[in-house]
Nucleic acid binder design. Structure first.
Lengths: 232, 232
DNA sequence: CGATGCGTTGATAACTTTCAAATTTAGTGG
DNA sequence: CCACTAAATTTGAAAGTTATCAACGCATCG
Protein backbone atom coordinates (compact mmCIF):
# COMPACT_ATOMS: atom_id res chain seq x y z
CA UNK A 1 0.00 0.00 0.00
CA UNK A 2 2.72 2.45 0.94
CA UNK A 3 6.04 3.18 -0.64
CA UNK A 4 8.06 4.67 2.11
CA UNK A 5 11.22 2.66 2.08
CA UNK A 6 13.24 4.76 -0.35
CA UNK A 7 13.77 7.84 1.76
CA UNK A 8 14.25 6.10 5.05
CA UNK A 9 17.85 5.55 4.00
CA UNK A 10 18.43 9.24 3.62
CA UNK A 11 16.62 10.06 6.84
CA UNK A 12 19.07 9.90 9.76
CA UNK A 13 19.55 13.62 9.61
CA UNK A 14 22.75 15.32 10.49
CA UNK A 15 22.30 18.35 12.69
CA UNK A 16 24.61 21.18 13.42
CA UNK A 17 27.08 21.07 16.20
CA UNK A 18 26.18 22.49 19.60
CA UNK A 19 24.75 25.96 19.06
CA UNK A 20 25.92 29.11 20.81
CA UNK A 21 23.57 28.34 23.62
CA UNK A 22 24.52 30.87 26.22
CA UNK A 23 24.24 33.81 23.95
CA UNK A 24 20.83 32.74 22.85
CA UNK A 25 19.61 31.88 26.29
CA UNK A 26 20.76 35.06 27.90
CA UNK A 27 19.34 37.45 25.36
CA UNK A 28 15.70 38.52 25.43
CA UNK A 29 13.51 36.18 23.40
CA UNK A 30 13.18 37.95 20.05
CA UNK A 31 9.66 36.86 19.24
CA UNK A 32 9.52 33.15 19.46
CA UNK A 33 12.55 31.86 21.28
CA UNK A 34 11.80 28.26 20.55
CA UNK A 35 11.48 28.84 16.84
CA UNK A 36 14.78 30.66 16.79
CA UNK A 37 16.54 27.92 18.69
CA UNK A 38 15.08 25.18 16.59
CA UNK A 39 16.47 26.78 13.49
CA UNK A 40 19.85 27.06 15.16
CA UNK A 41 20.12 23.49 16.34
CA UNK A 42 18.06 21.76 13.67
CA UNK A 43 18.68 20.73 10.09
CA UNK A 44 16.28 21.09 7.21
CA UNK A 45 15.62 17.78 5.51
CA UNK A 46 13.60 17.25 2.37
CA UNK A 47 11.19 14.40 1.99
CA UNK A 48 9.36 13.40 -1.09
CA UNK A 49 5.65 12.72 -1.19
CA UNK A 50 4.58 9.54 0.58
CA UNK A 51 7.97 8.90 2.11
CA UNK A 52 8.29 8.04 5.76
CA UNK A 53 9.84 10.40 8.29
CA UNK A 54 9.65 7.93 11.13
CA UNK A 55 7.80 4.78 12.04
CA UNK A 56 5.71 3.82 15.02
CA UNK A 57 7.79 2.34 17.84
CA UNK A 58 11.06 3.67 16.54
CA UNK A 59 13.17 5.53 19.10
CA UNK A 60 11.88 9.09 19.28
CA UNK A 61 15.24 10.80 18.90
CA UNK A 62 14.07 13.74 16.86
CA UNK A 63 11.55 16.50 16.98
CA UNK A 64 10.17 17.96 13.77
CA UNK A 65 8.87 21.23 12.50
CA UNK A 66 7.31 21.63 9.10
CA UNK A 67 8.99 24.22 6.93
CA UNK A 68 7.04 23.62 3.74
CA UNK A 69 4.63 20.99 2.49
CA UNK A 70 2.73 18.75 4.85
CA UNK A 71 3.04 15.68 6.99
CA UNK A 72 0.55 13.11 8.25
CA UNK A 73 0.95 10.96 11.33
CA UNK A 74 -0.99 7.74 11.50
CA UNK A 75 -1.40 4.32 12.98
CA UNK A 76 -2.28 1.10 11.24
CA UNK A 77 -4.99 -0.81 13.08
CA UNK A 78 -4.80 -4.54 13.45
CA UNK A 79 -7.32 -5.05 10.66
CA UNK A 80 -5.32 -2.97 8.25
CA UNK A 81 -7.32 0.22 8.50
CA UNK A 82 -5.26 3.35 8.70
CA UNK A 83 -6.17 6.05 11.20
CA UNK A 84 -4.57 9.39 10.52
CA UNK A 85 -3.86 11.18 13.78
CA UNK A 86 -3.03 14.59 12.48
CA UNK A 87 -1.97 16.70 9.54
CA UNK A 88 0.92 19.06 10.09
CA UNK A 89 1.35 22.14 7.97
CA UNK A 90 4.12 24.75 7.82
CA UNK A 91 5.11 26.02 11.28
CA UNK A 92 3.51 23.04 13.02
CA UNK A 93 5.68 20.89 15.23
CA UNK A 94 5.31 17.19 15.73
CA UNK A 95 7.10 14.18 17.09
CA UNK A 96 6.91 15.25 20.71
CA UNK A 97 6.91 12.01 22.63
CA UNK A 98 7.03 11.15 26.30
CA UNK A 99 7.80 7.52 26.04
CA UNK A 100 11.04 6.85 24.24
CA UNK A 101 9.29 5.79 21.07
CA UNK A 102 7.09 7.38 18.49
CA UNK A 103 3.48 6.45 18.98
CA UNK A 104 2.63 7.06 15.33
CA UNK A 105 4.27 6.80 11.98
CA UNK A 106 4.81 9.96 9.95
CA UNK A 107 4.84 10.46 6.20
CA UNK A 108 5.05 13.44 3.89
CA UNK A 109 1.70 14.12 2.24
CA UNK A 110 3.44 16.25 -0.36
CA UNK A 111 7.05 17.02 -1.09
CA UNK A 112 8.07 18.63 2.15
CA UNK A 113 10.90 20.37 3.91
CA UNK A 114 11.11 19.62 7.59
CA UNK A 115 13.29 21.00 10.33
CA UNK A 116 14.70 18.05 12.23
CA UNK A 117 15.88 18.68 15.77
CA UNK A 118 17.74 16.34 18.05
CA UNK A 119 15.57 15.73 21.01
CA UNK A 120 18.36 15.30 23.53
CA UNK A 121 19.85 18.61 22.53
CA UNK A 122 16.55 20.36 22.93
CA UNK A 123 15.82 18.64 26.21
CA UNK A 124 19.18 19.75 27.51
CA UNK A 125 18.40 23.31 26.54
CA UNK A 126 15.02 23.08 28.17
CA UNK A 127 16.72 21.94 31.35
CA UNK A 128 18.77 25.11 31.36
CA UNK A 129 16.19 27.56 30.16
CA UNK A 130 12.76 27.65 31.74
CA UNK A 131 11.40 29.65 28.82
CA UNK A 132 12.16 26.82 26.42
CA UNK A 133 10.74 24.26 28.78
CA UNK A 134 7.62 26.35 29.04
CA UNK A 135 7.23 26.60 25.30
CA UNK A 136 7.62 22.86 24.95
CA UNK A 137 4.96 22.40 27.56
CA UNK A 138 2.69 24.78 25.71
CA UNK A 139 3.21 22.73 22.57
CA UNK A 140 2.18 19.62 24.44
CA UNK A 141 -0.86 21.34 25.81
CA UNK A 142 -1.80 22.49 22.34
CA UNK A 143 -1.42 18.95 21.09
CA UNK A 144 -3.73 17.77 23.84
CA UNK A 145 -6.32 20.36 22.90
CA UNK A 146 -6.10 19.33 19.30
CA UNK A 147 -6.71 15.70 20.12
CA UNK A 148 -9.63 16.64 22.33
CA UNK A 149 -11.13 18.52 19.43
CA UNK A 150 -10.67 15.43 17.29
CA UNK A 151 -12.61 13.34 19.75
CA UNK A 152 -15.50 15.77 19.55
CA UNK A 153 -15.30 15.60 15.79
CA UNK A 154 -15.43 11.83 15.64
CA UNK A 155 -18.76 11.50 17.42
CA UNK A 156 -20.47 13.60 14.79
CA UNK A 157 -22.15 12.69 11.53
CA UNK A 158 -20.28 12.47 8.26
CA UNK A 159 -21.50 15.87 7.15
CA UNK A 160 -20.47 17.47 10.40
CA UNK A 161 -17.05 15.88 10.25
CA UNK A 162 -16.37 17.06 6.75
CA UNK A 163 -17.68 20.53 7.50
CA UNK A 164 -15.54 20.74 10.65
CA UNK A 165 -12.56 19.55 8.70
CA UNK A 166 -13.00 22.24 6.08
CA UNK A 167 -13.41 24.91 8.71
CA UNK A 168 -10.28 23.70 10.45
CA UNK A 169 -8.30 23.72 7.25
CA UNK A 170 -9.63 27.15 6.32
CA UNK A 171 -8.52 28.50 9.69
CA UNK A 172 -5.09 26.98 9.41
CA UNK A 173 -4.50 27.90 5.81
CA UNK A 174 -5.97 31.34 6.35
CA UNK A 175 -5.94 32.17 2.65
CA UNK A 176 -9.32 33.84 2.73
CA UNK A 177 -12.06 31.49 1.67
CA UNK A 178 -9.94 29.34 -0.60
CA UNK A 179 -8.54 26.10 0.73
CA UNK A 180 -5.84 24.26 -1.09
CA UNK A 181 -5.97 20.78 0.39
CA UNK A 182 -2.55 19.17 0.37
CA UNK A 183 -3.89 15.71 1.12
CA UNK A 184 -5.83 13.14 -0.86
CA UNK A 185 -9.44 12.18 -0.30
CA UNK A 186 -8.20 8.93 1.17
CA UNK A 187 -6.15 10.88 3.70
CA UNK A 188 -9.19 12.95 4.63
CA UNK A 189 -11.29 9.82 4.96
CA UNK A 190 -8.74 8.14 7.21
CA UNK A 191 -8.52 11.30 9.27
CA UNK A 192 -12.27 11.62 9.71
CA UNK A 193 -12.96 7.94 10.21
CA UNK A 194 -15.05 7.74 7.04
CA UNK A 195 -14.67 6.09 3.67
CA UNK A 196 -13.39 7.90 0.66
CA UNK A 197 -16.78 7.54 -1.00
CA UNK A 198 -18.57 9.17 1.89
CA UNK A 199 -16.12 12.07 1.90
CA UNK A 200 -16.60 12.54 -1.81
CA UNK A 201 -20.37 12.38 -1.60
CA UNK A 202 -20.45 14.78 1.33
CA UNK A 203 -18.32 17.30 -0.51
CA UNK A 204 -20.65 17.02 -3.47
CA UNK A 205 -23.68 17.55 -1.28
CA UNK A 206 -22.07 20.55 0.40
CA UNK A 207 -21.48 21.93 -3.06
CA UNK A 208 -25.06 21.20 -4.06
CA UNK A 209 -26.34 23.22 -1.13
CA UNK A 210 -24.04 26.07 -2.13
CA UNK A 211 -21.87 25.99 1.00
CA UNK A 212 -18.70 25.34 -0.95
CA UNK A 213 -17.25 25.01 -4.42
CA UNK A 214 -15.11 22.00 -5.18
CA UNK A 215 -12.59 21.60 -7.93
CA UNK A 216 -10.37 18.70 -7.13
CA UNK A 217 -8.26 19.73 -4.15
CA UNK A 218 -9.13 23.37 -4.34
CA UNK A 219 -12.15 24.26 -2.24
CA UNK A 220 -13.75 27.64 -1.89
CA UNK A 221 -15.98 28.33 1.06
CA UNK A 222 -19.06 30.15 -0.15
CA UNK A 223 -21.12 30.13 2.99
CA UNK A 224 -19.04 29.81 6.08
CA UNK A 225 -21.91 30.29 8.49
CA UNK A 226 -23.69 27.37 6.88
CA UNK A 227 -20.55 25.29 7.35
CA UNK A 228 -20.27 26.34 10.94
CA UNK A 229 -23.90 25.50 11.50
CA UNK A 230 -23.21 21.99 10.26
CA UNK A 231 -20.35 21.54 12.68
CA UNK A 232 -22.74 20.35 15.32
CA UNK B 1 -31.38 16.84 32.59
CA UNK B 2 -28.81 17.45 35.25
CA UNK B 3 -29.16 18.28 38.89
CA UNK B 4 -25.86 19.70 39.83
CA UNK B 5 -26.71 23.00 41.40
CA UNK B 6 -27.04 21.86 44.99
CA UNK B 7 -23.46 20.91 45.66
CA UNK B 8 -21.85 23.71 43.78
CA UNK B 9 -22.58 25.90 46.78
CA UNK B 10 -20.64 23.64 49.08
CA UNK B 11 -17.83 23.22 46.61
CA UNK B 12 -15.25 25.97 47.09
CA UNK B 13 -13.07 23.65 49.10
CA UNK B 14 -10.91 24.78 51.91
CA UNK B 15 -7.40 23.38 51.78
CA UNK B 16 -4.80 23.15 54.47
CA UNK B 17 -2.33 25.91 55.09
CA UNK B 18 1.08 25.80 53.46
CA UNK B 19 2.56 22.37 54.03
CA UNK B 20 5.99 21.64 55.50
CA UNK B 21 7.44 21.88 52.06
CA UNK B 22 11.14 21.75 52.73
CA UNK B 23 10.99 18.67 54.81
CA UNK B 24 9.08 16.85 52.15
CA UNK B 25 11.14 18.08 49.27
CA UNK B 26 14.45 17.26 50.84
CA UNK B 27 13.66 13.72 51.89
CA UNK B 28 13.81 10.85 49.44
CA UNK B 29 10.51 10.38 47.65
CA UNK B 30 8.83 7.60 49.59
CA UNK B 31 7.17 5.91 46.67
CA UNK B 32 5.15 8.45 44.92
CA UNK B 33 6.21 11.92 45.92
CA UNK B 34 3.38 13.63 44.14
CA UNK B 35 0.76 11.49 45.84
CA UNK B 36 2.25 12.25 49.22
CA UNK B 37 2.34 15.94 48.58
CA UNK B 38 -1.15 16.05 47.22
CA UNK B 39 -2.44 14.52 50.40
CA UNK B 40 -0.52 17.08 52.41
CA UNK B 41 -1.70 20.15 50.58
CA UNK B 42 -5.11 18.95 49.45
CA UNK B 43 -8.45 18.53 51.15
CA UNK B 44 -10.82 15.63 50.72
CA UNK B 45 -14.24 16.76 49.59
CA UNK B 46 -17.30 14.57 49.22
CA UNK B 47 -19.63 14.87 46.30
CA UNK B 48 -22.90 13.14 45.86
CA UNK B 49 -23.86 11.30 42.71
CA UNK B 50 -24.55 13.54 39.72
CA UNK B 51 -23.31 16.67 41.40
CA UNK B 52 -20.92 18.97 39.63
CA UNK B 53 -17.29 19.38 40.67
CA UNK B 54 -16.62 22.12 38.20
CA UNK B 55 -18.05 23.49 35.00
CA UNK B 56 -16.57 24.14 31.60
CA UNK B 57 -14.97 27.58 31.32
CA UNK B 58 -14.76 28.12 35.04
CA UNK B 59 -11.34 29.21 36.30
CA UNK B 60 -9.22 26.12 36.73
CA UNK B 61 -8.05 26.84 40.24
CA UNK B 62 -7.99 23.28 41.49
CA UNK B 63 -6.56 19.94 40.61
CA UNK B 64 -8.37 16.78 41.61
CA UNK B 65 -7.55 13.24 42.56
CA UNK B 66 -10.19 10.61 43.05
CA UNK B 67 -10.10 8.96 46.46
CA UNK B 68 -13.23 6.86 46.14
CA UNK B 69 -16.11 6.64 43.71
CA UNK B 70 -15.85 7.97 40.19
CA UNK B 71 -16.01 11.14 38.16
CA UNK B 72 -16.90 11.90 34.56
CA UNK B 73 -15.74 14.87 32.55
CA UNK B 74 -17.81 15.94 29.59
CA UNK B 75 -18.80 18.61 27.16
CA UNK B 76 -22.22 19.51 25.92
CA UNK B 77 -22.32 19.94 22.15
CA UNK B 78 -24.28 22.70 20.56
CA UNK B 79 -27.10 20.36 19.65
CA UNK B 80 -27.46 19.15 23.21
CA UNK B 81 -25.58 15.89 22.86
CA UNK B 82 -23.24 15.13 25.70
CA UNK B 83 -19.78 13.82 24.96
CA UNK B 84 -18.05 12.25 27.93
CA UNK B 85 -14.32 12.84 27.73
CA UNK B 86 -13.16 10.49 30.43
CA UNK B 87 -14.03 8.48 33.49
CA UNK B 88 -11.79 8.88 36.50
CA UNK B 89 -11.53 6.17 39.12
CA UNK B 90 -9.71 6.02 42.46
CA UNK B 91 -6.10 7.23 42.18
CA UNK B 92 -6.76 8.99 38.89
CA UNK B 93 -6.05 12.68 38.68
CA UNK B 94 -7.94 15.16 36.60
CA UNK B 95 -8.47 18.85 36.12
CA UNK B 96 -4.99 19.56 34.75
CA UNK B 97 -5.47 22.53 32.52
CA UNK B 98 -3.11 24.69 30.54
CA UNK B 99 -5.41 27.50 29.75
CA UNK B 100 -6.79 29.18 32.83
CA UNK B 101 -10.16 27.52 32.48
CA UNK B 102 -11.51 24.02 32.60
CA UNK B 103 -12.15 22.67 29.15
CA UNK B 104 -14.76 20.21 30.39
CA UNK B 105 -17.33 19.97 33.12
CA UNK B 106 -16.92 17.32 35.79
CA UNK B 107 -19.56 15.42 37.75
CA UNK B 108 -19.52 12.58 40.21
CA UNK B 109 -20.85 9.40 38.62
CA UNK B 110 -21.36 7.92 42.07
CA UNK B 111 -20.99 9.28 45.56
CA UNK B 112 -17.34 10.18 45.56
CA UNK B 113 -14.53 11.47 47.71
CA UNK B 114 -12.10 13.63 45.89
CA UNK B 115 -8.83 15.19 46.92
CA UNK B 116 -8.93 18.83 45.93
CA UNK B 117 -5.62 20.60 45.50
CA UNK B 118 -5.01 24.25 44.93
CA UNK B 119 -3.35 24.60 41.60
CA UNK B 120 -1.25 27.63 42.47
CA UNK B 121 0.16 25.87 45.50
CA UNK B 122 1.10 22.85 43.44
CA UNK B 123 2.53 24.94 40.66
CA UNK B 124 4.69 26.78 43.18
CA UNK B 125 5.97 23.48 44.50
CA UNK B 126 6.67 22.26 41.00
CA UNK B 127 8.69 25.39 40.42
CA UNK B 128 10.89 24.48 43.37
CA UNK B 129 11.09 20.75 42.87
CA UNK B 130 11.89 19.29 39.50
CA UNK B 131 10.63 15.89 40.61
CA UNK B 132 7.16 17.26 41.12
CA UNK B 133 7.26 19.12 37.85
CA UNK B 134 8.30 15.92 36.16
CA UNK B 135 5.46 13.94 37.67
CA UNK B 136 2.98 16.58 36.57
CA UNK B 137 4.39 16.37 33.10
CA UNK B 138 4.07 12.60 33.15
CA UNK B 139 0.45 12.99 34.12
CA UNK B 140 -0.10 15.25 31.17
CA UNK B 141 1.62 12.83 28.86
CA UNK B 142 -0.54 10.02 30.18
CA UNK B 143 -3.61 12.11 29.56
CA UNK B 144 -2.48 12.66 26.00
CA UNK B 145 -1.98 8.94 25.49
CA UNK B 146 -5.40 8.27 26.88
CA UNK B 147 -7.03 10.69 24.48
CA UNK B 148 -5.12 9.21 21.57
CA UNK B 149 -6.45 5.82 22.51
CA UNK B 150 -9.92 7.28 22.57
CA UNK B 151 -9.54 8.55 19.04
CA UNK B 152 -8.64 5.08 17.86
CA UNK B 153 -11.65 3.74 19.69
CA UNK B 154 -14.07 6.14 18.07
CA UNK B 155 -13.35 5.07 14.52
CA UNK B 156 -14.35 1.52 15.27
CA UNK B 157 -17.68 -0.28 15.10
CA UNK B 158 -20.09 -0.37 18.00
CA UNK B 159 -19.05 -3.86 18.97
CA UNK B 160 -15.38 -2.95 18.93
CA UNK B 161 -16.02 0.14 21.00
CA UNK B 162 -17.93 -1.70 23.66
CA UNK B 163 -15.40 -4.52 23.74
CA UNK B 164 -12.54 -2.03 24.04
CA UNK B 165 -14.38 -0.24 26.78
CA UNK B 166 -14.84 -3.42 28.77
CA UNK B 167 -11.22 -4.38 28.36
CA UNK B 168 -10.17 -0.92 29.48
CA UNK B 169 -12.40 -1.08 32.53
CA UNK B 170 -11.22 -4.58 33.36
CA UNK B 171 -7.61 -3.40 33.24
CA UNK B 172 -8.29 -0.38 35.40
CA UNK B 173 -10.47 -2.16 37.91
CA UNK B 174 -8.14 -5.14 37.99
CA UNK B 175 -10.54 -7.24 40.06
CA UNK B 176 -9.92 -10.39 38.08
CA UNK B 177 -12.54 -10.89 35.42
CA UNK B 178 -15.32 -9.11 37.24
CA UNK B 179 -16.06 -5.53 36.34
CA UNK B 180 -18.25 -3.39 38.55
CA UNK B 181 -19.23 -0.53 36.31
CA UNK B 182 -19.77 2.63 38.30
CA UNK B 183 -21.46 4.46 35.44
CA UNK B 184 -24.83 4.17 33.75
CA UNK B 185 -25.46 2.85 30.26
CA UNK B 186 -26.13 6.41 29.20
CA UNK B 187 -22.69 7.41 30.46
CA UNK B 188 -21.12 4.57 28.52
CA UNK B 189 -23.05 5.53 25.41
CA UNK B 190 -21.96 9.16 25.67
CA UNK B 191 -18.39 8.02 26.20
CA UNK B 192 -18.37 5.72 23.20
CA UNK B 193 -20.33 8.00 20.91
CA UNK B 194 -23.21 5.52 20.64
CA UNK B 195 -26.81 5.46 21.78
CA UNK B 196 -27.85 3.77 24.96
CA UNK B 197 -29.82 1.23 22.95
CA UNK B 198 -26.84 0.26 20.87
CA UNK B 199 -24.73 -0.19 24.00
CA UNK B 200 -27.40 -2.36 25.54
CA UNK B 201 -27.85 -4.45 22.43
CA UNK B 202 -24.13 -4.89 22.02
CA UNK B 203 -23.73 -6.06 25.59
CA UNK B 204 -26.52 -8.52 25.02
CA UNK B 205 -24.92 -9.83 21.87
CA UNK B 206 -21.56 -10.17 23.60
CA UNK B 207 -23.35 -12.17 26.25
CA UNK B 208 -25.06 -14.28 23.62
CA UNK B 209 -21.73 -15.20 22.09
CA UNK B 210 -20.45 -16.14 25.54
CA UNK B 211 -17.77 -13.47 25.76
CA UNK B 212 -19.22 -11.89 28.87
CA UNK B 213 -21.95 -12.23 31.48
CA UNK B 214 -24.08 -9.23 32.24
CA UNK B 215 -26.13 -8.59 35.34
CA UNK B 216 -26.98 -4.95 35.52
CA UNK B 217 -23.75 -3.08 36.19
CA UNK B 218 -21.77 -6.15 37.10
CA UNK B 219 -20.01 -7.71 34.14
CA UNK B 220 -17.90 -10.84 34.15
CA UNK B 221 -15.48 -11.42 31.32
CA UNK B 222 -15.73 -15.04 30.24
CA UNK B 223 -13.57 -14.95 27.16
CA UNK B 224 -11.06 -12.17 27.21
CA UNK B 225 -9.28 -13.23 24.05
CA UNK B 226 -12.57 -13.03 22.19
CA UNK B 227 -13.04 -9.53 23.55
CA UNK B 228 -9.55 -8.56 22.54
CA UNK B 229 -10.12 -9.95 19.11
CA UNK B 230 -13.12 -7.69 18.75
CA UNK B 231 -11.13 -4.63 19.69
CA UNK B 232 -10.06 -4.18 16.10
C1' DC C 1 -2.49 4.98 -26.93
C1' DG C 2 -2.78 1.90 -22.61
C1' DA C 3 -1.71 1.80 -17.87
C1' DT C 4 -2.15 3.89 -13.41
C1' DG C 5 -3.72 6.69 -9.70
C1' DC C 6 -7.30 9.54 -8.01
C1' DG C 7 -11.92 10.99 -7.58
C1' DT C 8 -16.94 10.58 -8.44
C1' DT C 9 -21.32 8.24 -8.83
C1' DG C 10 -24.80 4.43 -8.35
C1' DA C 11 -26.98 0.37 -6.22
C1' DT C 12 -27.19 -2.47 -2.44
C1' DA C 13 -26.07 -4.21 2.09
C1' DA C 14 -24.81 -3.54 6.83
C1' DC C 15 -24.95 -0.96 10.76
C1' DT C 16 -26.74 2.39 13.98
C1' DT C 17 -30.29 5.43 15.39
C1' DT C 18 -34.93 6.60 16.40
C1' DC C 19 -39.30 5.84 18.32
C1' DA C 20 -42.13 3.05 21.15
C1' DA C 21 -43.05 -0.22 24.60
C1' DA C 22 -41.95 -3.78 27.88
C1' DT C 23 -39.12 -5.15 31.72
C1' DT C 24 -36.00 -4.77 35.42
C1' DT C 25 -33.83 -2.27 39.11
C1' DA C 26 -33.47 1.15 42.73
C1' DG C 27 -35.35 4.18 46.03
C1' DT C 28 -39.07 5.47 49.39
C1' DG C 29 -42.60 5.28 52.68
C1' DG C 30 -45.58 2.40 55.11
C1' DC D 1 -39.99 -6.46 54.78
C1' DC D 2 -43.33 -5.24 51.22
C1' DA D 3 -45.65 -2.24 48.01
C1' DC D 4 -45.26 1.46 45.06
C1' DT D 5 -43.14 4.87 42.04
C1' DA D 6 -39.47 6.55 39.38
C1' DA D 7 -35.44 5.60 36.96
C1' DA D 8 -32.66 2.60 34.29
C1' DT D 9 -32.26 -0.95 31.03
C1' DT D 10 -33.70 -4.04 27.49
C1' DT D 11 -36.14 -5.26 23.37
C1' DG D 12 -38.65 -4.66 18.87
C1' DA D 13 -39.68 -2.52 14.39
C1' DA D 14 -38.82 0.98 11.13
C1' DA D 15 -36.03 4.67 9.30
C1' DG D 16 -31.74 6.78 8.36
C1' DT D 17 -26.83 6.80 7.66
C1' DT D 18 -22.61 4.96 6.11
C1' DA D 19 -19.96 1.17 4.08
C1' DT D 20 -19.22 -1.91 0.40
C1' DC D 21 -18.94 -3.32 -4.24
C1' DA D 22 -18.74 -1.98 -8.90
C1' DA D 23 -18.38 1.04 -12.70
C1' DC D 24 -17.02 5.22 -14.82
C1' DG D 25 -14.47 9.69 -15.81
C1' DC D 26 -10.35 12.14 -15.92
C1' DA D 27 -6.05 13.35 -15.54
C1' DT D 28 -0.80 12.03 -15.81
C1' DC D 29 2.93 9.38 -17.61
C1' DG D 30 5.59 6.05 -20.02
Amino acid sequence: MLTQTAIRASAPPTYFAAPPVDRVVNSRPPRDLLATILHLIGAVVSYRRNTELFGENEPADYLYKVVSGGVRTYKILSDGRRQISAFYLPRDMFGLEFAGEYSCSAEAISDAKVLVVNRKTLTALAGRDAEIARELFVLTARELQRVHKRVLLLVKTAQERVASFLVEMAERGSAGNAIELPMSRQDIADYLGLTIETVSRTLTSLETCAAIEVSSRRIVVRNRSALNRMNG
